[in-house]
Each structure stands twice: as C-alpha cells, then as structure tokens.
Nucleic acid binder design. Sequence first.
DNA 1: GAAGGGTGTCTTTTT
DNA 2: GACACCCTTC
Length: 731
Amino acid sequence: MEISKLLSALNPAQRDAATADSQHLLVLAGAGSGKTRVLTTRITYFCQHFDLSPWSIMAVTFTNKAATEMRGRLEELLGMPTKQLWIGTFHGLAHRFLRAHWAEAGLPQNFQILDSDDQTRLLKRVLKDMNLDEEKWPARQAAWFINSQKDEGRRARHISHNGDLFLATMQKVYAAYEEVCQRNGVIDFAEILLRSHELWLNNPTLLAHYQGRFRHILVDEFQDTNSVQYAWLRLLAGKEGMLTAVGDDDQSIYGWRGAKIENIRRFQQDYPQAELLRLEQNYRSTGVILKAANAVIANNSDRMGKNLWTEGTDGEPIKLYAAFNDLDEAQFVARSIEQQIGRGYARREIAILYRSNAQSRLLEEALLRAGLPYRIYGGQRFFERAEIKNAVAYLRLLGIRNDDIAFERVVNLPVRGIGDKTLETLRELVRAEGLSMWSAAETVIKQKLLPAGAIAKLAAFLHLIETLDAGTREAPLHELVDAVIKQSGLWQHHEKEKGEKGQARLENLQELVVAAREFDWDEDDAPSPLAAFLDHAALESGEQQAGEFEDAVQMMTLHSAKGLEFPLVFMVGMEEGLFPHEMALQENNLEEERRLCYVGVTRAMRQLYITYAEIRRLYGNESCKTPSRFIREIPAALVQEVRVKTQPVSSTPSPFRSNTPSVAVPRQTTLGGNESGEGALRLGQRVSHPKFGKGTILNFEGNGPNARVQVNFTDVGSKWLVAQYARLETA
DNA sequence: GAAGGGTGTCTTTTT
DNA sequence: GACACCCTTC
C-alpha cells in the first residue's frame, strides 16, 4: 500500500510515532490508541520510505497470537509475503538463533524444549536424587526459584548464599538441574532466552553479524519485558541499531512473573537521546469509560503519565450492581446479558472478566441455565493435555533416544509391566555412569542385570521404539504421528477407557494427526519435519481454535483480556480481598492490581458493568465482603447503581454513601409476619423446606403474606415460593 | 496397577 | 468445595 495514504489515515501523534527517525524511540501507547497500527505502519514506512529491506527488521512480541496478527497486517500493508521478516515472540526468535548456532551455544543439534510441566517433573527427579525431602523442598518452588534466577540472567554459579540454607540448597538444586538438562540436551523456556543471550556474549563475531543485519528492532508490550529480555534487546541493537519500544506502564500486570516495569525508565536512562512519544487519543471506549479508567489509575504513584481522551461521546454511565451473594451476582450477569442481547448486542460482543479462574464456575452455571452459549478462554491448552504430551513423548524418543524425560513418561504407558524396580535400576546406572535412561536400558539388557522377565519387557519397549523409527523414516509427518499413536498402544489404551473422557482423548489424538498433516515445515527452523513439529508443540501451546467463531459470550480472567476489546464488559467480583486480591495486598502489590483494574475497564467499548457480592463462598466457606476500593476510585458521577425490582439492597454501606447520602438504603428486609428476631428470613439466610430440603434465600418479591421468596436449594436448584405457604424454616 | 481414601492446596500465565 | 496428588490396599 502507498505509504502516504497509510500515514494520512493516522492522527498526528500516531504519525509522529510511525515516522520518527530517532535511533531510540519509546512510545507510550495508551489502551486503544492504535498501537499495533502504529507499529505496522512504522515497519512499512521504513521499508518503503527508507528502502530498508524487510530482512533487516525484527519485530518482537510476547504471544504467538500477537506475532501472527502483526504478520498478517504487515502482509496486507506491504503487499508481499513477509517470510523474510523476523516477527515472533522473544522465545520464538531466541530459539531460532539457538537452532542456527546450536554448537556455539553449547547444545546438541537435536536439543529439545522443556515445558513447565516437564520442568517440574524433572526437578522432582533431581530433588529426589539429591535426597531432599519433597515436603520441605517442593519441586514447584525450585522451579520458581530457578526460573526467576534465569529471568535475571543468573546461573547457579552466580548465586551467593552467604550461608543461607534456602539459598544454598536452591543453588545446589539449580546446579544439579543445569547439569541434568545439559546431559539430556533439553532447555526450558527461561533457558531459551538466557542461552541465546549468552550465545552472543560468548561469540562477538556472531553478535556483530546479527547487529549488522538487524538495523531496526521493534518491541511490543515493552512493559512486560524481564531483565534478560531487555538485555537481549540492547545487545542485539548494539551501537548502531534502531530500537523502537512500544508499551504502556499502566498496563504492566506481569510483575509476578518477572516483568520489569522499570525497564521503561531504564530505557530512557540507557538511551538518554531517546525520543518519547505518547499516544493518548483513544478510539475504543466512551468518554465515561475513559474517565473512569483515568481516575482509577491516577491513584498509582510514579507513573510515566498519560491521559486518555476521546473525540467520541460520553455514552452510558457505568452500571454498578451490589449483589448480596455470588449466586445473585451470577444471575444478575446472566439476566443483564439476556436483556442486552434483546437490545441488539451479539453474544460475542459481550465479555465477563474476573480476577481468578475459580470465579467462572457460578457464572457458567448461570449462563447455562439461561441458555446462553459461552466460551471460556484460558484453561488447558492443546499441547498440554496429558494424552497429547504422551504421544509427543514418543515422538521425542524417536528424535532423541537420550531424552530421559520422554523415556520416563512413556516407558510404561500404556502399562507394559515395566515397574519401579526396573526403573530404579536404570536410574542408578544413570547416576553412576552418567548414562541416559535409554543407554542404561541397553546396558541392563546386554549385561542381564535384571530377571529375565523384566529384561524381556524392557527389550520389547526398546524394540518398539526402534521399529517405529525404522518403519517411519520415509513417511510423511502425519503418518508417523499416526503410526506412533497406534503402534505404541496409546490409542488402544484410551479406547479401553470408559466414559466420555476416553472418547475426548481419542479425538485429541486424532487432532494431533491433523495438526501434523497441516503442519508447515520451514527448513530454516529445524533439521527435520519432526524436529520442527516438536518445537512447534513446545513453543506454541496451541490455543484451542475450535469454536472461536461461534457466537458466544466471552469469559476470561482480567489478565487474559489484555489486548482485547469488547463492546459490553462485565467486571465481576469487585470486592476487597478478591480484587485487589488478598495475596497481592499482602505482598504490597496494590498498584499492579490497580493496573489490572485499569486494563479491565479499558477493555470496554460502549458499556461497562461492575458487580460485587456482599457474601461470597470461596474455598468452601462463606465470607462477607466489602466493595473493592477500585469502585470508590471511580467518580460517582460516572456510575449508576442498578437495583433489581423492589430489591432489598446492601447490608453493607454503598460505596457511594458518603457522596450521595440520599441513596442510603434500609439495612435489611425481613419478610412475612415473622419479623421478630429468630425466625426472620433474610437474604442469604440458610433455610430448609419440608420437600425441597436445604437452601439459601436468593431474592424477595413483594411484601406481606403474598410475598414471594426465591430459594436456591442444594438439591433441586432455585425456586420461587410464596412465603406464607412455603413453610420455610431457618436452618 | 487400578481404585479408593486421605491430605493439602487453592491469583494471575506465556513461552 | 473441588481437585490434584500421594499413599495404601487388594
């Protein structure tokens, strides 16, 4: 596309950002300010206006989704295939360097990637081998420790423990883990970045080569970079390269996994000449929504500073609903969605955002009852499913016999009578001789170190892998996958499984064959289709695409909503302790929670609903909640409280009581002729009914003897009853 | 080695 | 309250 035409479609700030020719550029891009558009236009501008070859541009993102999207848009803009453009995630690009220079990086050519699940399993082994009590030294904690060290660029040898037992132990574990990984030829996610960084540090010529090649590096979501990622970028950009960082300090919500919001400031310190531009005009949300977002985020200290504005109208006020419990909240959301669909919203335009996944269940149930199709984002991904990981483990063994993680995973799956005793013998050999499990097995067989029965079973397994490998050398990838699934016995194993679960697993395995058939092998990436496919499986967890185009209400955590937008948004569970989350408060992370709130509010385009419950059941016990402080941070004038029918509202003060005393509400409504003390029916009251059993009062309608009461019974669900006939007793 | 019971955990998530 | 994980049992 013609560049002048592209530029004329941008506003002045966007145009400045797209065309700035300073060597170092920092763009603070507010939510909905057209950031991706600026990035892609900037790349196009540099290609066309400066005649810079796409070959010399690198664009880095955090998720595969963002990378794919950017590539798609660029293909459109540039009007040509973008294969030579290096667009990808940090991990994807770093991995590419490692594949190309495996020897210099100190890796075997066929090194494999360990996902977090593999990592934890491996660490469990390591801890066990070190005779560390797993109660006291959980694998997950060790994994967390190692990953955060790697995120900071530290190796085991860099850790000084000063006699601290925890640090000293973790250092030993880290060192042992490094060794096992090296011996097995596997690298975890954090290692991909660290290793790639070290590759350049140790090979100045190589670094110089790439510095010469990549003349312009652009990073998206810069506020989410961790220390290694930032160091990696700086190193690659070098003295000559141009570096464009686009980000929003107000949307930094991944501090807990190593992201360094400080990198934005560091960028300015490290590149004092850097140009700073702000994109503040928002094209997404109404004035009301933006004012609310601005007001909330203004409570954070030490911001870079930014104020979103729009030329659009104010739009509808934010609707606030105080539910008396979590069930009521879910029902309210379902009812409101039905209403809004009646007013013309499509289901897919509506999102429910929550702080933690546990909240989704009640909402799901309410949507289900209302007959509203929904789709939940997040949850288990395709390549993380157990059955898929099993099949992949077989594939990995075909690739490298020495892959102990894969070996351990499937040596007895499906069961072939290779038990703990056999494996312990192998592991001992592994420890003593530094062998892999596979070669240990070969030794055990050759030297008959076990009873004949065990030897035979072990030999049969090795034979199975060898035969599979030999028989599929020439076969296309999907046939290989199919053969592995069938001949390993995995297929039969799941066929025998009863219930829907086995069926679902078979379908997933089938899907793996399909994925293999559709997989496009790029020779630059890996030496064989199988190797490339395994990398793909590790690096792209395979977000479920199925059902993506179905018209369904969208449900997800606030975190996974980042980068998305929806005409109608429900932010639910806005209670102290839940959002901001208790843990965050304890760890003094209130500001990050507030940024998360900012992210949530700015997802909404036309209308925002906020709900909270006064009583919520969490982890089995009910507790009283107070409205989130974030609600109070929204100016009252932007908010309209919603009441359902002649509802008794609020047993706790409205968050706006201080601003609008006239809204003060009677404390609690009691019902029927039984207003004195003990038998009184209240919202949230546990009651029992002679026929329906126990339940909780959800709702009232009307007054006096004809009042109706809605009870959610444990066994039969929710029912409306006329109070005077219901013979409800408080339970 | 599958099934059942007991125990502990329970914020957010990509790669 | 739900689920995963570990251990024991048959």
